[in-house]
Measured scan of single mutants.
Amino acid sequence: MEQATVKWFNAEKGFGFIERENGDDVFVHFSAIQGDGFKSLDEGQAVTFDVEEGQRGPQAANVQKA
């Protein structure tokens, strides 16, 4: 698992990007966020996640709020 920071997340559209420590951004979809209830992330929030290869490149999976 990697630890990184949420760059931005649009709760209405259900997706955003996580900024990795190496500077690369990773796409995150609300369905990858672990937990119950409304799944959203806040800008600047610390998260841990795995990286999977998606249809359009790397994307976050198993996202957990740190």
Rank of each mutant, 00 (worst) to 15 (best):
G37H: 07
F15S: 00
F27P: 00
V6G: 02
K13C: 10
E12F: 13
N62S: 06
I18S: 01
F17G: 00
F38Q: 06
V51K: 04
A61P: 02
G14M: 02
G44F: 05
V28P: 01
N22S: 11
N10E: 02
S40V: 11
F27L: 02
A66E: 09
S31I: 05
P58V: 10
E52C: 14
A46G: 09
F49P: 02
V51G: 01
E43A: 15
E21C: 14
Q64M: 11
E21H: 12
F38N: 07
H29R: 05
V63C: 05
W8Q: 01
P58N: 07
V28E: 00
K39Y: 06
G57R: 06
V51P: 03
E19P: 02
R56V: 06
K13G: 04
G44L: 03
E2S: 11
F38W: 14
F15L: 05
Q45L: 07
E53M: 15
Q3W: 15
E43Y: 13
D25I: 13
Q59T: 07
R56Y: 14
D42V: 15
Q34G: 08
F17W: 07
G14C: 07
Q64D: 05
E2A: 10
E21L: 12
A60K: 01
F30C: 07
I33L: 07
Q64C: 09
F17R: 01
S40D: 07
E52Q: 12
W8T: 01
V63K: 01
D36N: 12
F27Q: 03
Q3V: 13
A60N: 00
V47A: 04
G57L: 04
T5N: 09
R56N: 11
H29T: 02
A4W: 06
S40C: 15
T48A: 07
F30W: 15
G16P: 00
Q59W: 09
F15N: 01
V28H: 02
F17I: 06
F9M: 01
F27H: 00
D25K: 10
A60V: 03
V51I: 14
F49S: 02
D42Q: 15
L41M: 04
K7S: 05
T48I: 12
A11C: 14
A46F: 13
E2R: 11
V28D: 02
V63Q: 04
K13N: 05
I33H: 00
E43G: 13
V47Y: 04
K65T: 10
F15I: 07
E12Q: 14
W8K: 02
Q3P: 08
P58Y: 10
F9N: 01
S31R: 09
V28S: 00
E19G: 11
E2F: 15
N10F: 06
A46P: 11
T48G: 04
N10G: 03
F15P: 00
E19H: 14
Q55F: 14
D36V: 12
D50V: 15
E12N: 12
M1Y: 11
A66V: 15
A4K: 03
A32M: 05
F38G: 05
E2V: 11
E21A: 14
N62D: 02
K39R: 12
G44V: 03
F27S: 00
D42S: 14
E43H: 15
E43I: 14
T5H: 13
I18E: 00
F15R: 00
K39D: 04
T5C: 14
Q3Y: 15
A61C: 11
V6M: 02
Q64A: 10
S31P: 00
V26A: 01
S31V: 04
D25W: 13
G57W: 06
F49M: 08
